[in-house]
Each structure stands twice: as structure tokens, then as C-alpha cells.
Design a protein around this nucleic acid. Structure first.
Lengths: 159, 159
DNA sequence: GATTTTCGCTGCGTTGCGCAGTGATTTTTG
DNA sequence: CAAAAATCACTGCGCAACGCAGCGAAAATC
């Protein structure tokens, strides 16, 4: 902890991850702009395709941080643009399942895959241990941010 | 490349990084909500504090992906809320330098630092080599996304 | 020195978004 | 088993962030 070398590594990582996220946001915007969609929609589409099962409107709302009302509008846009379809849930007739349309979504993933190829060249000169370390870091950061969000919500707001 | 183990690691990393970014977006929203700011404003504030020198309005626009008009509005909000000040650039009188207000920004970094502490416990059980690998990965992904954004912009849009 | 470019700023219209309320369905309760 | 409560997706409404186009001022270019 008092190791100056290590402290500098932490510092660098903190700085670099900020830039990393900023770059991601820009990239996401560029993809959205390229497809004529909104960044939020691309984000939702990404989440829809990561999960093997269709999501409900509420789940989309939770995962994107939107209200259910805005999530409904988001699904409206995705449906209108042909990227997703609504299916009533047979087991719970209040719910609506949102399923991505493979052919249409292929257009999006084509952009990602193109990035993926260049991305792989980036990963190629990492060792397997390093890859595991990176993945593990992201997974744990993911979990941590979840608890931190809870903490933030429970905290009193300044002002 | 045809190594199935390695391919699976790539797959995992791709999935995990999507979730990682989604988590970051949510966290950023939570911070913004906590401070009574907009996510974009927090993002800009983050960029302002990462760089040692003040940024111009145009730089903020480029770094956030906004137009200069929207960037002006963003700086308006930051200034009104007391997070930043405008200073005319003596060397180029067209430019306006945007400087973060340390005392006020401390409120924001306090949130980040609190996260930082728990974040360090996350980093603590990585070796120095792993830390370097993670940082390097982010830095290179950062550079890569820049060129990919260029590519996307130059590409013809579908539809 | 005239033209062009770049800078930040400002009206204007669009639209994503949160909020609050609604009906339909499920779950819980007495 | 019926009544009450909770949950789901949806809608009208108002707000405000955003892109766009155009503006003067200043700098760069020829």
C-alpha cells in the first residue's frame, strides 16, 4: 500500500480507465450515429444480444437505468426500426418479452465484429494469464460498481 | 487463433467488457444523480480533472462527442453550479479556457475516492505484472477505438 | 490587406427522458 | 375464496439536453 511503485500503478490505472470509458462512450456514439440509432438504443441492443434469453421491458429499464416508461419508448424505437419484436409472456400475461431480430441485429454485430477482428490483434500479444487477469478485473469491477450504486442511492444527497 | 482455450478467453473478455461498460454507465448515472448533475456533465468534469491544463470549449466538445453549441451549454451548467470557471485565453482571444473549481470539484472526487478505496482492495490482489497488463490493455483499446471511430465516420451509412 | 478558417455563442425545433397516473394481471392477505 | 396490495407495461405531459444553422470576433492563410 505504501509501496510507491504500486501506488503509481494504481494511479495510472485509474487515469487510463477514465480515458478508456470516455473512449467507449465515444465509440458507442459513433456506432449509434452510423446506424441511425441513439446511444441508449445501441446499449440496450448490446444487452439484448449478450443475454441468451429475451428480456422484459422492466429488465431493460433496470439494466440501462431508465424508468419503465422510457424503456417502453426505447422498445418502441427498436421495434419500429425492426431491431426487436415484442412477445407477450405466456406465463405472466403482464409481461412483454423483447426479442432481438437476428437478421436486423446482424447489421449491428457486423460493426462490432469488424471491431472485434482488430480487437483480437490487440489481445493476441497478451498471455493467457493476462487475459484472465483482465477479465477477472472487469468482472469484479462490475460487481463492485453494483454495490457502490446501492451505497450512492442510500446516501443523502448534497445540496 | 484456432486455440479453443484462447478463443474462449476472448469470448469471455468480450462479454465481460460489455457488462463492464454497462456497469460504468450505470455508476456514472448514479454519481450524476447523487450530485444533481447530468451524466454528461460528470463525464466532462472527469475529463477536466484528468488533464492537468484547462480545456477549451472545443476540446470538451471533441472529448465528449458533443457539438460546440451543446458544449457551451454544458459549460454554462457547470459554471452555474460552481464546478468550473471560464477564463479568456490571452494567447488566442477567440478561445475560452474552462478550469475546474477545486473546492467544488472536491465534492465529486470525494465520491470517486470513496469508490477508489474499495477499488484498491479490488486491485490489491493483482500482481504488478497483471496491473501493468490491464493498464496496457486499456491504453491500447483507447487508441484503437479512436481509429475505429474514424473508420466508422468515413464509412457509408446503411439505410 | 483581403479571404478563409476557427472559435465560442445563441435562437430554434426536435426528442429522449422522468414523473405520475391507468388498466390489466399476479401475488398476498385476512 | 374474495379483497387488498403489488407489479407489469403503457400513456400524457412538461422539461431540458441536444443538433443544427447562423452570428460576430479573432486568427490563420494567401
Amino acid at each position: 500500500m505504501t509501496d510507491p511503485d504500486r501506488a503509481r500503478l494504481y494511479e495510472e490505472l485509474a487515469t487510463e480507465s477514465r480515458r478508456y470509458h470516455a473512449a467507449f462512450v465515444l465509440f458507442n456514439q459513433a456506432v449509434a450515429d452510423h446506424l441511425g440509432l441513439h446511444p441508449t438504443d445501441v446499449q440496450a441492443l448490446s444487452l439484448l444480444t449478450v443475454e441468451p434469453e429475451p428480456l422484459t421491458v422492466r429488465q431493460i429499464a433496470d439494466l440501462t437505468g431508465l424508468t419503465t416508461g422510457s424503456a417502453t419508448r426505447l422498445v418502441d424505437r427498436l421495434e419500429r426500426a425492426g431491431y426487436a419484436t415484442r412477445t407477450p409472456d405466456a406465463r405472466d400475461r403482464r409481461r412483454v418479452l423483447v426479442t432481438p431480430v437476428p437478421e436486423r441485429v446482424a447489421r449491428v454485430t457486423a460493426v462490432w465484429d469488424e471491431l472485434g477482428r482488430t480487437w483480437e490483434t490487440l489481445l493476441d500479444d497478451h498471455s493467457e494469464d493476462e487475459l484472465r487477469a483482465i477479465t477477472r478485473h472487469m468482472r469484479r469491477a462490475n460487481e463492485l460498481s453494483r454495490t457502490q450504486i446501492e451505497r450512492l442511492r442510500s446516501l443523502p444527497k448534497p445540496d
